[in-house]
């Protein structure tokens, strides 16, 4: 297997230009939403709104202003996290979602049958159906480009290097250095989200540098694998089944007893 590849997205230097979104849609030939009809979301300058089957990069604009001229913008180019333990891959019943030789997570569109289990399983809300294909789609970390030694379209287009591509080991090293630099410069709330291999989901191969609570960026604090809930839920299901079986058998037994009690007593003649 090749080395694990991923993205390091440093949100502190994102300028919200959306070049990554455009490059992604262009390279992957993703269709326009509603035939290109303009849509205003009311979410600051963000009219993409969210990641889905036709938006595999999404620049979130977060306005933090208590007073005019007193606050800040947070901008984050969001993408599939290519989780080391991926919920989508786990639940996919068709084998359409695979882990590649680059340790990335890819949906094979020709295998997917559009059951949408992966959409509900992803803790980040990354996946959705591409209405043209009828299948679930998301970022492939430009599998077609990196197989040929090229950089993914989004990081290639990013003018500030907010999005960096490389081996996960090297990116983590670089990211830790960047956090140290920010701390030294007084930005002490800077931290890495998803860079810890011992953290949730075994670490994220596409991880982020953030300066506020994950919820502010639209990210869960402690993302979980859906299968973590399988044992508990199945156990209670089995308990329910057992209770119903007992209710049924006790009811049938009572019916027999009631009938025996109402019948006139007859002298016992051997076994019934």
């Amino acid at each position: 297997m090749a080395e694990a590849m991923g993205f390091f997205t440093d949100t502190t230097i994102c300028i919200g230009c959306k070049a990554c979104e455009v490059a992604c849609k262009s390279w992957n030939q993703l269709p326009a939403r509603d035939g290109g009809a303009p849509q205003l979301t009311g979410l600051s300058y963000d009219n993409t709104a969210k990641l889905d089957g036709i938006h595999w990069r999404h620049v979130a604009f977060i306005e933090q202003f208590d007073q005019p001229y007193d606050g800040r913008w947070l901008m984050m180019s969001d993408v599939c996290k290519h989780c080391v333990q991926a919920g989508c891959l786990e639940v996919c019943p068709t084998g359409a979602i695979i882990r590649t030789e680059f340790d990335t997570v890819v949906i094979q569109s020709d295998v997917c049958n559009g059951c949408r289990a992966c959409i509900a399983a992803c803790p980040f809300g990354v996946i959705d159906v591409n209405p043209v294909a009828g299948t679930a789609q998301k970022c492939t970390l430009c599998y077609d480009r990196i197989s040929e030694g090229l950089e993914p379209a989004c990081s290639k287009a990013c003018p500030t290097d907010s999005i960096q591509f490389g081996t996960v080991a090297e990116l983590r090293e670089r990211a830790r250095g960047r956090v140290r630099q920010l701390h030294a410069d007084g930005q002490e709330d800077a931290y890495l989200y998803g860079a810890d291999p011992d953290g949730p989901l075994g670490g994220l191969n596409a991880f982020f540098l953030l300066v506020d609570d994950p919820h502010v960026y639209g990210l869960p604090r402690e993302p979980e694998l859906p299968s973590a809930r399988l044992a508990g839920s199945s156990f209670f299901g089995a308990v329910g089944a057992a209770v119903l079986a007992i209710l049924g058998v006790v009811g049938l037994r009572k019916r027999r007893m009631d009938e025996l009690a109402s019948e006139p007593a007859v002298p016992a003649e051997g076994e019934p």
Partner: peptide, 29 residues
């Protein structure tokens, strides 16, 4: 399904026939 004609992908691995598509940890499977 988004692609109803591929319903059988739930039961067989279409790229590796006749292997079954079965995951004990995926309720939909």
């Amino acid at each position: 399904l988004g692609r109803p004609e591929r319903f059988w992908h739930m039961l067989f691995l279409n790229q590796d026939l006749p292997r079954l598509a079965f995951k004990s940890y995926s309720p939909i499977s």
